[in-house]
Design a protein around this nucleic acid. Sequence first.
RNA 1: GGAAACAUAGUUCAAUGGCAGAACAGCUGGUUGUUAACCAUCAGAUGAAUGUUCGAAUCGUUCUGUUUCCGCCA
Length: 480
Amino acid sequence: MFNKRIKIKELLAQEPAGQEVTVMGWVRTFRNNQFIALNDGSTNNNIQVVVELGKFNDELLKRITTSASLKITGTVVPSLGQGQKMDLKAVTIEVLGDSDAEKYPLQPKKHSLEFLREKAHLRFRTNTFGSVFRVRHALAFAIHKFFNEKGFVYMHTPIITASDAEGAGEMFRVTTLPVDGTAPKNEDGSVNFKEDFFGRSTNLTVSGQLEGELGATAFGDIYTFGPTFRAENSNTTRHLAEFWMIEPEMAFYDLEDNMNLAEEFIKYIIRYAMDNNREDLEFLAQRLAEEEKQLPQDKRSEMGLIEKLEFVLNNNFERLTYTDAIDILKESNHNKKKKFQYEITGWGMDLQSEHERYLVEKHFKKPVILYNYPAAIKAFYMRQNEDGKTVAAMDILAPGIGEIVGGSQREERQDKLETRMKEMHIPLEELWWYLDTRRFGTVPHAGFGLGFERMVQFVTGMTNIRDVIAFPRTPGSAEF
RNA sequence: GGAAACAUAGUUCAAUGGCAGAACAGCUGGUUGUUAACCAUCAGAUGAAUGUUCGAAUCGUUCUGUUUCCGCCA
């Protein structure tokens, strides 16, 4: 059998006792014509392969270059050196794939994240991205584990959608019609989408929520976890045109239940990564600490990455209403000294990033759940509160990232929902299927959306969202 | 969509309008229990266009690319 190998992570956990093993991986460095640091992606730690002098011919040794792939069989012995507990004394070395050292773009040294972004197809072979993407995997797995343990049904909502009613953002059009101006036209000159593939205008989904509600009103609890698309021209370190979103939707939940679930959920997946990817997180913590050494004192984090995650696990998220948040902002010294770029105009204003950041990073210094927002600044499907001016919406704000979760109790009362939709010019006839849930056995229900990449950013400490997704899609950029 | 900054060798950085340098990576050779090895030799660059000037990496204009911030949100 070809692939009878031991993964390096597993090998490093063993005691060196002369056992014979086969490892396969990629060369990180080849020191002294004698020591190969081999990595197979199972961990950032390398196995040191010892090539005894004179045992292999020069022609073979010349092919052992950075990122060449090797199959090595040898015996595991205690290391004579200080840097590692074991050596793999090579008996046979097979070069599976050569790597031309003159052309291979990654050198055995530190590279900038910007440079590696241009080499996104190879950046997984670095320690930083190895750790980031193993943690990303762990978080994804933990998400399914959490919901499965709670009896949620994983629902696959459509990626191509006909409804553009939710207004969550600009959409990408999906069409097979020609783009050279020869597409069939209506009498008024507009494109006739009745002639298009689906017989109507379609887009890539901006949210699976509306379909999720259909599932929740049958299964009780569902969640979605899939790709989401926004054609917004957003150029920031926390926006992508294609990102992954988790959207649980629960029948018989009110806003408080919703907040409880969201907080439990976030803590659960962080705990899972802490328990299962400790080494990777420690590496990322060290990386972040070194990166922050470049920053002026006031821009550095007060806590290290591990410390921050522990803190989040061990403390309740601060919950306060939008109204209380406005009061805190208004009364803050920061505001009195006129240090906000955007003035606190009072109740009803939409909070700017700087206001949210002040609450999270300066005032409370922990994740914050803001709830009961003014109806005027929120979506049509959010449940109207008895005060007549707020809706049962909640956002979770995380230090360093900002909004990580947006959710609400949904408006289950058909008359109130329809009135509000009309006010906001949402076409009721297009969402007939959505309104049917309110017509037939409507129930109080709630849900939220969590941006997966923002969660990965928070846990890994990576500051740019483009560095936590394998192949980022952003305005003007879709390489790979 | 708006604003700003940056662009020099494969990478990370130097260079008062006056000879483009270094470190690392790479080639070649040496060395041999190294720890992103060490020693020596060699080769390699001003994003593009244009203007000002005796002379432009350096100053102006346009373009391209990258980054950051704001808005929109997850």
